[in-house]
């Protein structure tokens, strides 16, 4: 499985309040949430994002609230993968549980620029910056998490147990 798209680049500590502000949490509809994704950090994001695009951020992406609405909004906005130096732990769990692909890779986080075309191979963890012609090795998931991802989320995984 691969992801390929244009990169939106953000810095350290992108919190779930800017990913999806709480004023929109009176809805749990993915499409509605996607319409406000990243609104408080990047007002242009929802206007520009296309299906398959990739978010690249630095440290502690998704810190703050446990709201699953955050990875849901990102996924529903069409984002195919989030690459970061590190993820906050609840966001990390939530992304795996709902089937939003994420990759931890400090080198890619530093080496990739906004607007680059990037391809991610989820089987090998290899991240290729097609614009710059560079490659990075992302961290592989433990086998247990790979099974959840292969089941497209925690609930399907539990149902198959």
């Amino acid at each position: 499985m691969n992801a390929k798209g244009t990169v939106f680049k953000y810095g350290d500590n992108v919190d779930t309040d800017v990913i999806i502000p709480a004023r929109y949490l009176n809805s749990s509809d993915p499409e509605e949430l996607a319409g406000h994704c990243m609104e408080d950090i990047d007002g242009d994001f929802v206007k520009k994002v296309k299906k398959g695009d990739i978010i690249v951020a630095a440290k502690n992406f998704g810190c703050g609230s446990s709201r699953e609405h955050a990875p849901i909004a990102i996924k529903a906005a069409g984002v195919s993968c989030v690459i970061a130096e590190t993820f906050a732990r609840i966001f990390y769990r939530n992304a795996i549980n709902i089937g939003l692909p994420i990759v931890e890779c400090p080198e890619a986080s530093r080496g990739i620029s906004a607007g680059d075309q990037v391809e991610v191979n989820f089987d090998t963890g290899v991240i290729t910056d097609l614009t710059k012609g560079t490659t990075f090795q992302g961290q592989a998931f433990p086998e247990f998490m790979q099974k959840i991802i292969a089941s497209e989320g925690l609930i399907n995984y539990i149902n198959r147990q």
Binding site: R93, N97, I155, I158
Partner: peptide, 18 residues
């Protein structure tokens, strides 16, 4: 510890969490 809604659902259904 804090978790998301899917973990909460799994916890309510199975009484377990990873």
């Amino acid at each position: 510890t804090g978790v998301g809604s899917t973990d909460m659902a799994a916890g309510m259904a199975t009484g377990k969490a990873w």
